[in-house]
């Protein structure tokens, strides 16, 4: 397991999981907030970090209601999907009987 994925916090994982559940669909910040229970103060720093690591990509989408600013939507990149699979496989891996640090 790489150091990159090992460092992911439970909140970060919840964001990745929510994005993964969305598949190829673009998800807005509010949708992610509702799915993860994270407020804007926690959600955006996580999205920024994930975006900087290349795990998440964003796109501006025009809103249907006139006069409203465009919204930034997100989805997982291939790298993000791979990171999530890596974390999942580690968490579901059977307990190793081999003692550590010997």
């Amino acid at each position: 397991m790489s150091r990159k994925s090992r460092r992911l916090s439970p909140q970060t994982l919840s964001v990745l999981t929510a994005l993964s559940a969305g598949g190829q669909n673009w998800l807005y910040g509010l949708e992610l907030s509702a799915a993860t229970g994270l407020k804007s103060g926690s959600l955006y720093p996580i999205l920024i970090r994930l975006s900087e690591r290349g795990l998440v990509e964003g796109q501006w989408l025009e809103t249907e209601k006139p006069g409203r600013p465009p919204r930034h939507a997100y989805r997982l990149t291939g790298q993000g999907r791979a990171a999530l699979i890596e974390v999942d496989s580690h968490e579901t891996a059977p307990f190793s009987a081999e003692p550590r640090g010997v």
């Binding site: 407020k39 804007s40 103060g41």
Partner: peptide, 27 residues
């Protein structure tokens, strides 16, 4: 860019705008 992203969601939010804005201010 991220500030604009937060603002876009704030404009779309109908409930809990104060909480959302407070979080944005914190960021």
């Amino acid at each position: 860019l991220w500030s604009e992203a937060m603002r876009g969601e704030y404009a779309a939010e109908s409930r809990g705008r104060l909480g959302w804005a407070a979080g944005c201010l914190m960021v």
